[in-house]
């Protein structure tokens, strides 16, 4: 792994017990000038995402879904009208080969299908999932993140990163525990 060679240490992680504490910690860290960090929580807390520097422009799931939906709808309509009008035209009592209203159900279903799959798959890809291994899993108590604990990790890639300073800083936030995260 390229990253772990360059940064043998992934970052430093602090553990908190409440949503309020993690929000305050993330905001304080941001105010202190740290930029490359992430918080880990058992359930979504919108403000924490914002506090660790996640901006609206980083979230392209909706756009992906929109593009997928448009392409899906276009594909569905093209498929139906090509099959009925070009590849296998059936003359039934002189009725039109391409009656567009009859193709709306298929167009609609294709739109919804591709839009939904784009949202789901796009979200996974943008999140870098599936990723069975990640350095944060090396923290022994990290398995409580999916139960009731909240973690803040300042990563080694941060320009202001300095092991001693960051450790002291995180300790000043009243965490339950501060741990070095092996890369």
């Amino acid at each position: 792994m390229k990253q772990s060679k360059k940064y043998p240490i992934y970052g430093i992680m602090a553990e908190f017990e409440t949503p309020g504490a993690i929000l305050k910690a993330a905001q304080t860290a941001h105010d202190a000038g740290y930029r490359v960090m992430d918080a880990y929580t058992p359930f979504p807390i919108e403000e924490v995402s914002e506090a660790v520097g996640f901006r609206r422009k980083d979230n392209r799931v909706a756009l992906t879904s929109l593009i997928g939906g448009l392409l899906g709808g276009l594909g569905g309509y093209t498929l139906a009208s090509s099959a009925a009008g070009v590849w296998f035209p059936l003359n039934i009592a002189g009725r039109p080969f391409i009656p567009w209203p009859m193709f709306i159900p298929v167009t609609f279903e294709a739109t919804v299908l591709i839009a939904g799959l784009s949202a789901a798959i796009g979200m996974l890809i943008m999140n870098g999932l599936p990723s069975p291994y990640h350095p944060v899993f090396n923290v022994p108590r990290f398995n409580r993140v999916t139960t009731d604990r909240f973690f803040l990790c300042i990563e080694a890639r941060d320009p202001k990163y300095d092991e001693g300073v960051v450790t002291e800083f995180l300790k000043s936030l009243n965490p339950t525990e501060v741990t070095l995260v092996q890369g």
Partner: peptide, 11 residues
């Protein structure tokens, strides 16, 4: 490999 990252949660 879900790890509850707040950036992941947003998306």
């Amino acid at each position: 490999g879900w790890r509850g990252s707040s950036k992941h949660w947003a998306r």
